[in-house]
Design a protein around this nucleic acid. Sequence first.
DNA 1: GCTGGCCCTGACATCGGCGTCAAGGTTTAC
DNA 2: GTAAACCTTGACGCCGATGTCAGGGCCAGC
Lengths: 119, 119
Amino acid sequence: MRIGELAELAGTSARALRYYEAHGLIEARRGANGYREYDESDLRLVREIRSLLDIGFALEETRPFVDCLRAGNDSGSVCAASMEVYRRKLAELDGCITRLQAVRNRLRGELAEAIAQAG
Amino acid sequence: MRIGELAELAGTSARALRYYEAHGLIEARRGANGYREYDESDLRLVREIRSLLDIGFALEETRPFVDCLRAGNDSGSVCAASMEVYRRKLAELDGCITRLQAVRNRLRGELAEAIAQAG
DNA sequence: GCTGGCCCTGACATCGGCGTCAAGGTTTAC
DNA sequence: GTAAACCTTGACGCCGATGTCAGGGCCAGC
């Protein structure tokens, strides 16, 4: 399939796919006319990338998962490097959530105080 | 005081202060030499801005608080517009936290699964 | 009078993940 | 045969809050 179709199937844009390629995450055979040609395995890679990006991963962080899939594994998550990224992300998320909750509570307090003072 | 001193007292940079000024959040008298001159009330304004930015507010969102302080209120939070921003931010934070927790749980699940498959 | 430290304005650089336009070649449908 | 819809590369735009450099004044101490 060509880039437009792949983009549509993966729920993204041709521009994004070229971007991933420029960063070495995906590759493409070229037809006689110079057009990129993809197959089902490429679709899997792109879907892996997209779902990780949607979760909040940076593009670079998807690389271990892509490499893992490319290495022939059924899942992009079963490689050591991928799991390491998972762990890091999990810790990052925990920190983020904790921080946000602290901010949230502080905000609630300040709002309550402001209402008391204004009322 | 001059811009360097204000920046230091407020825990920020001269560059940032000029940026706030460019966006109409603070003003400065000018000395005979063209240097910006600030006083204690300016320090209050900047501290208000900084603490809100540190919490995760966008610069524009600090404007109601600054206006509120400038209007002579003891706190930047007691004006209707400020409290509205507080409420919006609070809702935003709640949504953000909920989403992050969902992602976190999903991540935990996937990590556990990956470990099971790899092990 | 000179060096060093402050200040000024203006403007480009940063980071990430693309969007979007330019200027062309290719293929497809009628 | 021609217009529409695809594809190519290259390059600039975006967002926000600054950092940082360029090129220049102003002022204090020695």
